[in-house]
Design a protein around this nucleic acid. Structure first.
Length: 571
RNA sequence: GCGCCUAUAGCUCAAUCGGAUAGAGCAACGGAUUUCUAAUCCGUAGGUUGCAGGUUCGAUUCCUGCUAGGCGUGCCA
């Protein structure tokens, strides 16, 4: 549990502004939001805030004057971690921290270990994250892999900052698509038994995996199912197909390091009576009307450009009904916040689902939907292939991991795939460069980070060989860490808890990935220029060992959030 | 047509929700190796942030309009 220096500074600034207001020196109604951030250059101190700039208009004073007033209410001497506060440029307040702050950071990291970076901001609130939710009609594709990595990591982040988040997979095991799965398997089954002139029906699934699945049934059980009526056979193959594909998807996810806490069946939702309840609710609220032999929902009343059908001409529900019921169900389960990750092919559904949630009378900000954008696979020749599942041609997650594993081994394959999926913002298209992914060199960020970890580990392993016994941190002279590089490293380490919190709340998992790369990018140069283990300088060695341990801890904690292994040795 | 996303160095991308001089990696060029694991490091070079306006102390970030690319727009889920 980390109490960040940021929250301390925030409190100090807040108190100073409040004091200035009550002293009548600032005529503003209340303490505003105080934006502040680590600085980019050391000249500007360690943290800086432009809060005075923002208040200028409201307080009717020049920004520098406001900054003066605020700073006058901070007693620097009372805060040992603050060395100096000055005002620069148009009115920035720059806070220079003392070296004591750096040492305190190291002590915190060493003391907290695995817990460094966590906090209790979420206050135990329950959050549900639904992701992947691929149809049980085929293997997981690349975008599902990306969604799996992102969703899994977001849950890790949310749990790290004190929420109780769970992973949930919605199984679309009812409706037209799985019917067509049944008919597709039926065709393949009969073909396997030698029947000719059959074709996969329009909208069916042509993938090779169904041919294999049907062949296996034919091999093991022969033509027994031909005696059934067509409808019965299709329905049987549908259910077996769903079970088979679902098991396959689960295995792929497990291989990828993702385990879902809850699998919710659409069929179960349909059978629960909830669809009828919400339809009645919609009817009572006059959201429904009949036209063209179907039942429509007034989506236009919510700002959409057209209404949509909820009960088809043939009496079947469209997917909107179970989907709305599913979200009602999520709400009834008591989640404080629900986050859905949808694939790029579902973007038309985003505003509609929001509207249904509104129509159900649920709070607008309760549901959050992010689109996981397309993944372009850049192959060895540099060609792009798009991953559209509907066109029948797609690369599966397993195929990707297989491909990587062939080059760099199974464990690294998963690490690299996860990192590559996590290094871009969710809503941007992602180019997956396979050539780069299998490179065991510095241009591969995963190896770069893992190598930094391995170096830390190795140093800590070799202390005895060099006649050094690591001491407890309170017996170490941390002030011997004099190099600017060491300071920069510790500063970076200190940012980790705030970053974890920010990433979780902004749902921006890629920031962790970038951070780790930057941290490794500070450690490697330090390692090259400053030898840690040096029997001739025992005291300094002790101090550098603490720094090494701290770097190792943060790398380990960060990688754990991303679900990437921290390996001690080269494979 | 309408909607969503994207556009930043030659390439792939960052930039902590509007802050100070826009940062990394790759590729290019020049260096470091009897190492605490070279999976590394040091240096050089690289920019009118797609275009045009607007908002303001201040814009890669917000607004409007263009341009280009991707995706979506079913009585499929």
């Amino acid at each position: 549990m980390t109490d960040t220096i940021q929250s301390e500074i925030h409190a100090i600034l807040q108190a100073a502004i409040r004091a200035a207001i009550s002293a009548g020196e600032l005529s503003i109604p209340d303490v505003p939001d105080i934006p502040f951030s680590p600085t980019k250059t050391p000249e500007h101190g360690d943290f800086a805030t432009p809060v005075a700039l923002g208040l200028a208009k409201q307080a009717k004073l020049p920004p520098r004057k406001i900054a003066d007033t605020i700073v006058a209410h901070i007693e620097v001497a009372a805060h040992p971690q603050i060395r100096q506060i000055d005002i620069a440029g148009p009115g920035f307040i720059n806070i220079h921290l003392s070296d004591e702050w750096l040492y305190a950071t190291l002590r915190t990291i060493v003391a907290e270990g695995d817990a460094y970076g966590t906090c209790d901001k979420g206050a135990g609130q329950r959050v549900q994250v639904e992701f992947v939710s691929a149809n049980p009609t085929g293997p997981l594709n690349i975008v599902s892999g990306r969604a799996a990595a992102v969703g899994d990591t977001l849950v890790n982040l949310l749990n790290a900052v004190g929420y109780q988040a769970i992973r949930e997979f919605y199984v679309n095991d009812a409706g037209g698509q799985v019917e067509r799965l049944g008919t597709s398997i039926d065709v393949r089954y009969r073909q396997a038994l030698g029947e000719t002139g059959l074709q996969i029906p329009e909208g069916g699934y042509e993938g090779e995996y169904l041919r294999e699945f049907a062949q296996a049934i034919a091999d093991a059980e022969g033509d027994t199912y031909l005696q059934l009526g067509a409808a019965e056979r299709v329905s049987l193959f549908r259910d077996r197909g769903i079970a088979h594909i679902l098991a396959q998807q689960e295995a792929s996810l497990e291989r990828f390091g993702v385990q879902f806490d809850v699998w919710t069946s659409e069929k179960a939702i349909r059978d629960s009576g909830k669809p009828e309840e919400i339809l009645q609710l919609f009817r009572d609220k006059q959201y429904l009307y009949e036209a063209e032999d179907a039942t429509w929902f007034r989506m236009s009343a919510f700002g959409d450009d057209k209404d949509c059908v909820v009960i088809r001409r043939d009496g079947e529900y469209t997917y909107f009904v179970p989907d709305a019921a599913y979200h009602r169900d999520k709400f009834d389960r008591g989640f404080h916040q629900v986050i859905n990750f949808f694939g790029p092919d579902h973007q038309g559904h985003v505003s509609r689902l929001h509207n249904f949630v509104k129509a159900l009378g649920l709070p607008d900000d309760w549901l959050e939907i992010s689109i996981i954008q397309q993944v372009n696979f850049v192959n060895a020749e540099g060609h792009r292939e798009d991953m559209s599942k509907r066109r029948g041609k797609f690369l599966t997650l397993d195929a990707l991991v297989d491909e990587l594993a062939g080059a760099i081994g199974e464990r690294f394959a998963v690490d690299v795939a996860r990192y590559f999926f996590l290094m871009r913002a969710n809503n941007t298209h992602l180019d997956f460069n396979l050539e780069l992914a299998i490179t065991e060199a510095n241009e591969n960020p995963v190896f770069y980070i893992q190598y930094a970890f391995a170096r830390c580990w190795s140093i800590l392993q070799k202390t005895a060989e060099h006649g050094i016994t690591p001491r407890r941190i309170d017996k170490v002279s941390l002030e011997l860490l004099t190099e600017p590089m060491a300071h920069e490293l510790i500063r970076k380490l200190s940012e980790f808890p705030a970053l974890v919190l920010f990433s979780a709340e902004a749902r921006e998992v890629h920031r962790i990935a970038h951070y780790l790369h930057e941290l490794a990018g500070l450690f490697h140069p330090y390692y090259n220029q400053h030898r840690v283990l040096d029997a001739a300088h025992q005291e300094r060695t002790q101090a550098r060992l603490v720094l090494t341990r701290a770097v190792q801890t943060v790398l380990k904690n960060g990688l754990a959030l991303l679900g990437i292994s921290a390996l001690e040795k080269r494979m």
